[in-house]
Write a protein that binds this DNA or RNA. Structure first.
Lengths: 237, 237
DNA sequence: CGATGTGTTGACCGGGTTCAAACAATGTGG
DNA sequence: CCACATTGTTTGAACCCGGTCAACACATCG
């Protein structure tokens, strides 16, 4: 008996399977959103979970004293709202970064259906687990990489996310300001700007003609190499 | 129909309910461990999830290049292994920090039983969700608090964890070295040491006679106040 | 056109790291 | 029991990465 989804699938197939599974087993509310629109806000009562179907989204964790941090970026197939299940209220704000579509799923219906469909249950667990693992990798980067390498790692992660979804990963349009990237990576906007300039000077990335938000990645592995070089340089003592 | 555990319960009651639920619905393998013993290692095939029944535990996320980071501390009622569900292999090392006991639960059995018991399913989801939320708060602290405040926040979190479990929270015995704390908080051991000295000088904490690993917290809210003060001071611009 | 938001770059500053020295706690073997 | 090694903690001094402040370049938009 297969209790988990077959492990030999590609990420792209996994996402397709998830969306198909949801579509056939649960009532879904499609919602088209535009850049800047909020899906839910921290503190709102959690009634739905959301699955990204198109576009991409950010989640922001805020503290009572005004500090806030961009916690996650979410692409097609990612869930939104997991962190609010425990206390029935969303823990973050979720905001669209671009025109896109989310599928809203009533959480009570999801729970009920999970009781009937082992495949659905496994998919939900896997998604939560993956999010946990991603957050941990983010923390690792945050604590162990210098600013330049952190930016490189960020771009590599973005390229990975695109590639996993079958999109071209050599061309990225950041729909984020330097300040937003900095918030996400735990550094100031000037530092992000300098890091990008340095990466471009080292030919690890390449600014397209059109604006400074589009950038080309000639070779994704060069980004990884850059990160490794930083780590190795620091390890010399 | 109550799809989630009653929200009016205290954390301590919730933990009791979880352990009772597990005990009556699933075959459990109890395992007593001593300080330094490993529960599982990153990369091992995931067969069991674990629930802490006594003692406390750390999880460590390592990268291929040697960087590693203490990601989480886990007390009674916490689960271990969630982040390995997605790809069937643990993503972290889990190590006992003290003599304790974990309950091992076969993941396939858990999944099956979740299909039958809505209460169990809700409890598992809530636990994962809570872990997600905790990781995010940790990131927020990591990125927005200066070193001293980060240490204060860490101690407050520890005291909270003790209090939630009905233990006395005014007296903490850190079974961690300064280096370990620093790794957890993203700073060097010297910085941790200095921060603790400063907190002690400000009477926010108090070193007990016996060694510098036992410390008293005269007033937990003073720790929060210290954090807020740091944030406010930085916000002056 | 000016106004506004965003990005880049320079100069300086400071919090945290690095390096180093001394001390405390614990354990080990003679 | 002490001599000694080992590991962890504290504190000081110098240094440096990233933050802060500031000036300027470019967009887009009314």
């Amino acid at each position: 008996m297969a209790i988990t989804v077959d492990t030999a699938v590609t990420p792209s197939q996994r996402i397709g399977q998830l969306l198909a599974l949801l579509q056939e087993q649960l009532p879904i509310l499609r919602r088209v959103v535009h850049a800047g629109e909020s899906i839910y806000a921290a503190g709102d009562a959690l009634e739905h979970l959301y699955v990204v179907h198109a576009g991409f989204f950010k989640t922001i964790n805020g503290a009572a004293d005004g500090r806030d941090k961009l916690i996650g970026l979410h692409f097609k197939g990612d869930w939104l709202g997991f962190d609010g299940i425990a206390d029935g209220r969303y823990g973050c704000d979720a905001v669209a970064m671009d025109t896109g579509e989310v599928w809203a799923i009533r959480y009570d219906a999801l729970l009920q259906q999970c009781g009937r469909s082992p495949a659905l249950l496994a998919a939900v667990h896997a998604a939560m687990s993956r999010e946990l693992a991603r957050d941990r990798d983010a923390m690792l980067a945050l604590c162990t990489l210098p600013a330049d390498a952190r930016v490189a790692d960020f771009l590599r992660g973005w390229a990975d996310a695109l590639e996993q979804r079958g999109l071209r990963s050599d061309q990225i349009t950041l729909r984020m300001t330097r300040a937003e990237i900095g918030n996400y990576l735990g550094m100031k906007l000037e530092t992000v700007s300098r890091a990008l300039s340095r990466l471009a000077r080292d030919k690890v990335i390449d600014f397209a003609e059109r604006g400074r938000r589009d950038l080309r990645i000639p070779d994704v592995s060069a980004l990884s190499a850059f990160v490794e070089r930083s780590v190795a340089a620091a390890a010399v003592h």
